[in-house]
Amino acid sequence: MRDLYSNIKTEPAIAPAVQTANVNGTAVDLKGANRVAFVLNTGAVAGSGVFSAKIQESDTTTSGDFADVATSHVDSDAPTTLEAASCYRLGYRGHKRYVRLVLTRASGTSIAAGAAAVLSDLANRPVA
């Protein structure tokens, strides 16, 4: 069957907004899911805003426990500096229970951005 809708689950990762500082996204629980990818959408960049994206992982939801994921466990088409009006995929191949997307501001003013986590290879399907 070619029904993707019933075989994936989505979770908010970063609420769409004009981002003016570093953003630690929402912790996404991977329990019951064997795969996850983040879909990051950007809008306008103001004041030459230079932002990058990365994935962090943890065994807990405590913010201080999250650490950057090794590059060997990330598949990404996001450039080092995010561009305006773009859409990127960042996939995670690690083994921790929780992941989050992080936007880091290097300089400039802001970027409009938001992201969702797409979970697949779920233990319970179809997704309600």
Rank of each mutant, 00 (worst) to 15 (best):
S107I: 04
T26R: 12
N24I: 10
Y5P: 00
A21R: 06
H95A: 12
D29L: 15
E11D: 07
N124I: 14
D65R: 09
P126W: 14
I111T: 03
D59W: 02
R105E: 05
L90W: 10
H95F: 09
T20V: 14
R35S: 12
K31E: 13
K31C: 01
D75V: 13
Y92L: 07
V23L: 13
L40P: 02
D3F: 15
V18R: 08
V45H: 04
V102W: 04
T81M: 03
V127W: 09
S76Y: 01
S76W: 02
Q19N: 10
P126E: 15
V127T: 14
T26Q: 14
S52T: 09
A78H: 05
R100I: 03
A112P: 00
T80I: 07
L119Q: 12
A128R: 09
L103M: 09
V36P: 00
A44N: 06
H73P: 00
H95V: 09
I55T: 04
T81Y: 02
R93L: 05
R89K: 11
G64N: 15
G32R: 03
A33Y: 00
G108Q: 06
Y5K: 15
Y5T: 15
S72I: 05
S6L: 15
S120W: 07
V50C: 00
L122W: 01
V39L: 10
Q19A: 09
R93Q: 06
R100C: 03
R35Q: 08
A85Y: 08
G47F: 10
K9Q: 14
F51K: 07
C87D: 01
G25V: 10
S6P: 08
R100P: 03
R93M: 05
K31M: 12
A123F: 09
N22P: 06
A33R: 04
E11S: 11
A13M: 08
L90E: 04
A53T: 06
S48R: 05
Y98P: 01
T109I: 11
S110M: 08
N34Q: 13
G49V: 11
P126C: 15
N22K: 11
S48V: 09
T42Q: 01
I14Y: 02
V28Q: 07
C87F: 03
K9E: 14
